[in-house]
């Protein structure tokens, strides 16, 4: 199969890494090759984070080449816009509508883009907005918004449901498995 390039962009602390793990585990269960890369360290501290997940028969580079992203999950609207140009015209972008002000905005040094939705709309790929925090809350915990977004990507990968269930089991602690299964299901519905 052709390599699928996925980017997950968000803010340090949102669970981008766990979301990447679920995607990677699912691909491993499908018998595919995986490379996943993110940078942690300083960026943990509330900065922008982006994780690259590449899935295919043989994957060499752990980084998605510029402009070659098939699926982008934006964990925050501004972070979706920051990476929207990486998505191919035939690609898919799902993003959480929950805003988190960057420190530069909080401190009054910059403004959060007012026309964000319109600017996202100008990119040619297919786009879906998801109230990830609200759906996660409905599943039992707002912090599961990351799993909602994985659910929203799931159908684009064409893996059987059983694979996703096993990937969730392999990635989240047993005591919060039910909650995350529900978050995944709600995300999958919302992803369209």
């Amino acid at each position: 199969m052709k390599t699928i390039n996925i980017l997950l962009s968000g803010v340090g602390g949102q669970g981008v890494i766990l979301a990447s793990k679920i995607l990677s585990e699912a691909a491993l269960l499908q018998g595919l090759d995986i490379k996943q890369s993110e940078v942690h360290g300083m960026s943990q501290r509330g900065g922008s984070v982006v994780s690259h997940v590449r899935i295919g028969d043989v994957v060499h580079s752990p980084l998605v080449p510029e402009g070659q992203c098939d699926l982008l999950a934006g964990f925050e609207p501004l972070e979706a816009l920051r990476f929207a140009h990486q998505v191919k015209p035939e690609g898919f972008l799902v993003y959480s509508t929950d805003r988190i002000n960057p420190s530069t905005v909080s401190a009054g040094l910059a403004e959060y883009p007012a026309d964000l939705e319109a600017r996202l709309g100008a990119f040619p790929c297919t786009k879906t907005a998801v109230p990830a925090g609200e759906l996660a809350e409905r599943a039992g915990n707002r912090r599961a918004a990351n799993v909602v977004l994985v659910g929203a990507l799931a159908d684009r990968l064409g893996f059987p449901d059983e694979v996703w269930q096993r990937a969730l089991e392999a990635s989240v602690p047993a005591k919060v498995l039910r909650l995350n299964q529900e978050a995944f299901r709600l995300g999958r519905e919302a992803g369209g």
Binding site: V11, G12, M42, S43, Q44, R45, G46, G47, S48, P65, E66, G67, Q68, L78, E79, L81, R82, A84, H85, P102, S103, T104, V105, L109, A110, E111, Y112, P113, R119, F123, P124
Partner: peptide, 16 residues
Amino acid sequence: ANMLAAAEGLPIRPPV
């Protein structure tokens, strides 16, 4: 590379 232009003028999100 066949690249689209990145959105410009976005506020940066440095570590804090």
